[in-house]
Structure formats: structure tokens, C-alpha cells
Amino acid sequence: MKRKLYLVLAAITLVAFVAGCGNNNSNNNSNTNQGGSGGEEGAMLEVLRAGVKSDVPNFGIYDPETDTYSGLEIDLAHMLAKELTGDETKVEFTAVTAQTRTPLLDNEDLDVIIATFTITEERKLVHNFSTAYYEDAVGLLVKKDAGIESLEDCDGKIIGVAMSATSEDAIQAAADELGVNVTFEAFSTYPEIKAALDSGRVDIFSVDKSILRGYMDDTTAILDDAFSPQQYGVATKLANKEVADKIEELITQWLNDGTLQELIDKHQI
């Protein structure tokens, strides 16, 4: 029985490793393919497969009635598609969550992730990130009747954050400085955090301010507190240097010529 168990365990680990290696190989092949046989003259990709948010108003939100995505990051994806494939309509959107975006990129199911993906030093070790196309600070959304004016009033409170939360450390540090005791609960999607706020499961909904704005209603307010600026970058697979460099070039260009600012103004964020 014991020996059988070890065998099974070994098998699982092996399969996992082989799957990982296999991906590395196919990665190289598909790269050359994509590079060589692009549909149009000079096009890097036939179609841009973009991982985006489906639940963040103004950035990436999915409308099931029209089966379309909209938001700043969607527009950005179309603009990148125009440059990379020659046709701004050649984009395939895939909704991603904190748990799915990295594997989807690693497995080459996606070319880029444009999904309020915050740039961190650790993440730069595993993905390419473009220069930030948007910068925002982490904010706190509370119920108006909760009597919370700032982080100072948050002693003993529960803060709902996103699974991928880079905000947790920043708020924790600020809270420690104030001598305020807070706990964190993490959720996979933003609507889940909002539901938890509405039901009183968490006292504070804390993500990036621009995202919070999409979840404001008559009963909630965003506090003035702001923590650790979050920079959103376009992420690509680390090995995919060619595309990453092109995207970096484009983003920098759009930052400098005001295109991105227009986009931000258009979405009022």
C-alpha cells in the first residue's frame, strides 16, 4: 500500500513537470511561427490574444447583453492590435482572474495581459511589464454609516482585498504606524468584495481608487487615504521579448504624445 502511494505521488509530480517543460518547447516553436508567417506584411501577430478584466468598470467590463468588453484597457488592446496585427479588430479577449492570468500567459493562451495588473519587483522576475500606462493609489471604500473617516478609525476592522492584493502590505504598514489593528480577507473578484461589504462581512473594500470608483453608490464613500501608488503595466511572457519590446515602444510613445491621457479622460478615470 505504501509503495503504491509513492508511485502515484511520483506520477503526479512527473506529469506536472513534463507539462511544464512541454510548454517551454512549444513556446519557442510558436514564437518562430508567429514571427515568420504573419498574415500581413510586417505584422508581428495574426491576432492579439488579450487577457482582460471583466468586472472592473472603466477598465475592463464585460456586457453579456452585447457580448462585448469595454473600458480603457479594452481600447488599449485594440490600439495595440492595430500596431501588432495591422487590424484593430483582430483582438480576442479572455476574462482573467488573479489565479488564471499567469498560467494563461505562461501557456501561451494569451499574448498580453492588460488587466489592472500592478507592476512589482517580484512580478518583473516572472513577466515582462511595459512602462505603466496608468498610475493609481490604493484607496478605502466604506459604508457611509460605518463612521469611518480614515484608516485611524479602522481598529479591529476587516478589510476586503483582492486575491492578487499588492495593497495588503502597504495598508498593513500604514496601520502598524498608526497602531491600528486590521485583518484582511481576500476574494477572487471585485464584485465578491462589494457583496461582502454590503453584507457587513468586511468593513472596508480596499483596491485601487479608480477601480473603487466603479463600485461607488449612494451608501458608500471613498476615504481620502491613499496608499502605495499602483502602476498598471501590460504584461507579456518573459521569453516573448520581441512583442514586449514593441509594446514598450508603443506605450512610451502614447504616453509622450498624450494619446493615453486622452484615453484616460475619455473614460473619466
Binding site: T102, E122, R123, V126, M163
Partner: peptide
């Protein structure tokens, strides 16, 4: 879930 979506995003070992 929380561990694999933070830090260096090590979903491979995490889920295994």
C-alpha cells in the same frame, strides 16, 4: 489561491 496570486505568482508548485 492567495499564495499563488501574490509574490512571484508560483501557481505551479502551489496548486500541485
Amino acid at each position: 489561491n492567495k499564495w499563488v496570486s501574490s509574490g512571484t505568482l508560483n501557481y505551479g508548485p502551489g496548486f500541485v
